[in-house]
């Protein structure tokens, strides 16, 4: 895969991107709701329109941050310089942008499980190096490194991260509320321009310190409330 290929000239989608973004990737994502379960419990999300607002907000806060960090991780994996000494620093950038302890925990759990899958599916010295440096990486770190190992570019990695930020949450809402799945997929299709914009903005790169750091206090609160709930169907 030549990262220099211009997608405007060659619009072929990288098959690795499809695998990374597919909810069937067996990396544990199906059991995370991204705050939707608690939002349903609290009544904030109760139908398709309220889910639409939730997904849009999630994409433009947590999703935008995750996409930028994932693109940075993918670029870091490609080097130079050799990525291994840098993984801990980039992982700390994720910590600094993830206020709620419950969200940090969920991110590391998903990152660890994705790294496990990626090491078997796309064996690579980069992934082994990441596992040595940060065995429990945040999800954007694991996703960026896995995307590189799979032959994807930072922009493609960012697209997978942006989609991940809303895809799992949408599916969780279908399961929890019995929403019409076609209507919910219609919401995701309606977010396509936003997904493209978020992934496109993530490619600009720059210093890690200047990566986006949007906060989403409602998601932070939902995550903390969820972690303390007595009855819980989803991990997060």
């Amino acid at each position: 895969m030549d990262p220099a290929v211009n997608p405007a000239v060659n619009p072929a989608v990288n098959p690795a991107l499809l695998l990374l973004a597919d909810s069937r990737l067996p990396a544990g994502g199906h059991a995370h709701s991204g705050g939707v379960e608690q939002a349903v419990t609290s009544g904030a999300v109760h139908d398709v329109p309220s889910l639409a607002g939730f997904l849009r907000g999630r994409l433009h806060t947590a999703g935008t941050v995750a996409a930028a960090l994932t693109a940075a991780a993918c670029a870091c994996a490609a080097g130079p310089p050799p990525p291994e000494p840098a993984w801990g620093l980039l992982d700390a950038e994720v910590d600094a942008r993830t206020a709620a302890p419950a969200q940090r925990e969920a991110s590391r759990t998903q990152g660890r499980l994705l790294l496990r899958v990626a090491r078997r599916v796309w064996p690579s010295p980069v992934l082994e190096g990441l596992a040595r440096a940060v065995p429990n990486p945040h999800h954007p770190i694991a996703l960026g490194a896995a995307a590189h190992a799979a032959g994807a570019t930072p922009e493609e990695a960012a697209m997978a991260a942006a989609y991940h930020a809303v895809g799992g949450a949408a599916t969780a809402a279908v399961r929890l509320l019995g929403l019409d799945p076609v209507a919910v997929h219609g919401l995701l299709a309606g977010l396509a321009p936003d997904l493209a914009a978020v992934a496109g903005a993530a490619r600009s790169g720059g210093d890690w310190e200047s990566l986006p750091a949007h906060s989403s206090p409602a998601l932070d609160l939902l995550a903390e409330q969820h972690a303390r709930a007595d009855v819980r169907l989803f991990i997060s």
């Binding site: 069937r24 994502g29 199906h30 059991a31 759990t109 660890r112 499980l113 496990r116």
Partner: peptide, 9 residues
């Protein structure tokens, strides 16, 4: 069956 990652972990 389909996504055993959390159980393996």
């Amino acid at each position: 069956r389909d996504d055993i990652a959390a159980n393996l972990d």
